[in-house]
Every structure is written in C-alpha cells, then in structure tokens.
C-alpha cells in the first residue's frame, strides 16, 4: 500500500512535467492543425540549452529553462514562418513527412554538433528529498513539477486573459473569420508554434536535474507526449494537464507491476484503446 501511494506521488510529480511538454504539442495541433512529430526534439534542444547554460555560465537548469524557452520560441517562430507555414493546407501525410524530416534533421544535427556522449548536470538539491510521514517527495521532481505548474498557469493566463490569447483561440476556431476581424493570422500561428515548442523546451530544461541529455533524448518522450495529448483530446490545453497527470500515474504504477522495458507497451495499449473508444479524448472536444 505504501509503495502504491509512493508510486502515485511520484507519478503526479513527473506527470506535471508530462503535462507541460504535451501542452506544447496540443497547442500546435489546436492552432495550426498539424501533428508535429518533431515536437520531442525541441525538448532535447531545451535540455541542451539548459545544460550549456549550466556548464558555461553556471546557471541552474531551473533558471536555464527560461533561456531555453526564449531561444526555442524564437527558433519555432522562424521555423513556422519559413517552413511549416507552407504545408498548413497540404494533406495530412505531407505534414507528417515534413515534421518527420525535421525530427531526423534535428536529431542528427544534435549528434553532429554535440557528439553522442551523455551529459548531465550536478546541483545541490539533486539527491535530496522531503519526507512527509512514510512518503518521500524527491526535490528535483518537486522543483520540476512546480515549474511546470507555474508555466501551465502562465499559459492559461495568456490564453484566457490577454488579447494575444484571444487572437490565438480565435485562430484555432476559425482562421478565416479571424482574418476577417483583423487578426494577423500568420503572425498568430507563428507565435503559437513558438509558444508550443518553447513550452516543450522549457519542460526539457526542468527535468535536466534528474535526467541526462544526449542526441536521441527526445525519442523516449514521443510516445508519452502523444498519449498525453490524445488522452486529453488533441488541441485541448486543459485536457493535456489531466492527461499528463494520468499518464504520469499510469507509468509510475505500472512500473510496480511490469518490467521496465514493458512500460512503453502499457502506454501504447492505453493510447490505442483511447483512440478506439474516445477519439476526441477523455474529456471530449474542448
């Protein structure tokens, strides 16, 4: 029983991070209508930025996360304007190939630029944990969780309380109508893409205190992100939060019962079951 509760606590902690990286994916889909297979590569990029910020400037990855967000936001904005924009009206399959191509380019670009060695940071709080009764909350998990929640709340505020957020939501609902009432759709879409990949990079940076970075670090998150996004309903930001926490708990609890290699298998099966039973996500269209 104790181990089950412990697993649920751990699951919620990592689930918060899953939520933030998947919000990026779901935001890109919701506003631009494309499934970005390269999304997880931006997570890897965020990890590298935070790593080098730590190695060169001595910046804690939690502070480096803001740097990662800023750099990747700019990169995403540029990518959308130059490349992604051209396939927005193309068939789904062209979009898949474009983003898969981007995935390959980014992964191998990282290999060329940074080499294949595994890098990790050392921080003072890395191995510490809080004890609450019989349970432990690992400090790096908690920090990543809190940072993720904070960024999720900020995004919620932007989407619901600012003019930009309204423009983004209007574009998601009907780009044509948005253009008619004077929204610069192209710019809004580029900002949404930048925000989406930036948030994922932010999530990559905050997990750096307990994970290592290497060129294929993103690939282990691909299934996870898609499961979270589909679980919550592709395009729904609130759904991604619920989905993220759920997937965190599912993976953490299933690790108690199955060998580690089969953890992904459980995710895949959940993923296929959700697609089959509730294609719009557990919460329906949001």
């Amino acid at each position: 029983m104790t181990s089950l509760v412990q697993a649920i606590i751990d699951g919620l902690m990592v689930g918060g991070v899953y939520a933030v990286i998947s919000i990026g994916l779901t935001l890109v889909f919701g506003v631009l209508g494309i499934v970005n297979f390269a999304q997880a590569e931006f997570l890897m990029l965020g990890m590298y930025i935070a790593y080098f910020a730590w190695a060169a400037l001595g910046l804690d990855p939690l502070a480096g996360a803001f740097l990662a967000f800023g750099i990747v936001f700019a990169l995403g904005y540029g990518l959308q304007r130059t490349i992604i924009q051209r396939v927005l009206k193309a068939p789904a399959v062209s979009q898949v190939f474009l983003t898969v191509g981007l995935l390959i380019v980014m992964e191998n670009g990282a290999l060329l630029a940074f080499g294949s060695q595994i890098r990790s940071v050392t921080t003072a709080y890395q191995t510490k944990s809080l004890q609450i009764g019989p349970f432990f909350v690992s400090l790096p998990y908690l920090a990543a969780f809190l940072m993720s929640i904070a960024s999720g709340v900020s995004l919620w505020w932007v989407l619901n309380r600012s003019w930009l957020g309204m423009a983004i939501r209007a574009t998601a609902i009907d780009p044509m109508a948005g253009r008619l009432i004077g929204i610069n759709i192209d710019r809004v879409m580029a900002i949404a893409f930048g925000l989406g990949v930036g948030l994922t990079a932010f999530g990559g940076a905050v997990v750096l205190p307990y994970l290592s970075v290497f060129p294929t670090a993103g690939s282990q998150f691909v299934v996870l992100m898609f499961t979270v996004a589909v679980l919550g309903g592709l395009g729904s930001v609130a759904g991604a939060v619920v989905g993220g926490l759920a997937v965190g708990v599912i993976t953490s609890v299933s690790a108690l019962m199955f060998p580690i290699q089969l953890q992904n298998l459980v995710l895949f099966l959940v993923f296929i079951a959700i697609l089959a039973l509730r294609p719009d996500g557990l919460m329906g269209r949001a």
């Binding site: 889909f29 499934v35 789904a92 399959v93 898949v96 299934v223 898609f226 589909v230 592709l234 060998p259 290699q261 089969l262 992904n264 298998l265 895949f268 099966l269 993923f271 296929i272 079951a273 697609l275 089959a276 294609p279």
Partner: peptide, 27 residues
C-alpha cells in the same frame, strides 16, 4: 479499433500498433 479513425488519428493509431510489436520483439 482504427477503422473509424480519420486522418491524423488513423496515422497515429497505426504507428502505435507497429511500435507495440517492436517493443514486444525487443523484450
């Protein structure tokens, strides 16, 4: 499970299906 799915969802569902086999073969 995938017959009713369209577009992106069908692509994602089939992709996950093949990954299930890859994981099983590896394990």
């Amino acid at each position: 499970p995938t017959m009713r799915l369209k577009g992106h969802y069908f692509a994602l569902g089939t992709l996950a299906f093949a990954e299930v086999f890859r994981v099983i073969a590896n394990t």
